[in-house]
Computed example of a mutant assay.
Amino acid sequence: MSRFFRAVSTLALAGLLTRCATSSGAGGTAAAGDAVPLRFAWPEGLTVQVSSTDTTTQSEQAPEHSELSYQLRLEGKGEERKLITEEMKPTAPAATPEEGPPPPTPAMVLGPQGELRRIEGIDQVVQQMAQEAESQGLPQEQQAQITKLVRDALEQATRLRWEVLVGKWNGLVLKPGEAVERKGQTTVPLFGSNVATVEHVSLKEHVPCTEGAKEKRCVRLVLESSIDQAGLAQATDQLLGKVKAVMKANMGLEDQALPELKVTKLRLDSTLEFIAEPETLVPHRQRTVTSSQVELQEPDADPKNFDIQSERVETFTPAGH
Rank of each mutant, 00 (worst) to 15 (best):
L190K: 11
A245F: 00
V282F: 04
E99C: 02
I122S: 01
T22E: 07
F4D: 07
E215W: 00
E99V: 13
E224C: 03
F40Q: 03
T147D: 01
K304P: 00
G114P: 05
S310V: 09
L172E: 07
S310Q: 15
A14W: 02
K248D: 00
S59I: 06
K77P: 00
A31P: 00
D269M: 10
N170V: 09
A196H: 07
V222E: 14
A21W: 08
C218A: 13
V173I: 04
Q58P: 05
V198D: 04
L17I: 01
G25H: 05
A276S: 10
T315L: 14
C209K: 03
L172P: 00
Q136I: 01
R161C: 02
A35L: 06
V219Q: 04
Q234T: 14
R161I: 00
Q71C: 09
I275F: 01
E279T: 07
T10M: 10
T10H: 09
P283I: 06
T96I: 15
T280H: 05
E311R: 15
D54V: 12
L17S: 06
C209T: 03
F191N: 02
E273P: 03
K77V: 02
V150K: 06
L272R: 05
G252H: 06
L160S: 01
D255Y: 00
F4W: 12
R3Y: 12
V180Y: 03
L160E: 13
Q256W: 02
L16S: 10
L68E: 11
H321R: 14
L240M: 12
K244P: 00
K82P: 00
L74V: 09
S69T: 11
K168L: 13
Q140E: 15
L296N: 04
H284T: 11
M247R: 00
E224A: 14
T186I: 04
E60M: 05
V109C: 05
F191W: 08
S292E: 08
L223P: 00
L74K: 03
S270K: 03
P63W: 09
T187M: 13
S193D: 10
S225D: 02
L190H: 14
A133D: 02
K214W: 00
G76E: 06
S52W: 02
P189Q: 08
L16Q: 09
A144D: 10
E80V: 11
V50Q: 05
G25D: 06
Q234K: 14
E98Y: 10
Q309E: 13
L232C: 04
A179L: 08
W169D: 08
G25R: 07
A133S: 12
A94I: 04
K168R: 15
L281D: 05
R3C: 02
R217A: 10
M88Y: 01
P139L: 10
Q140T: 12
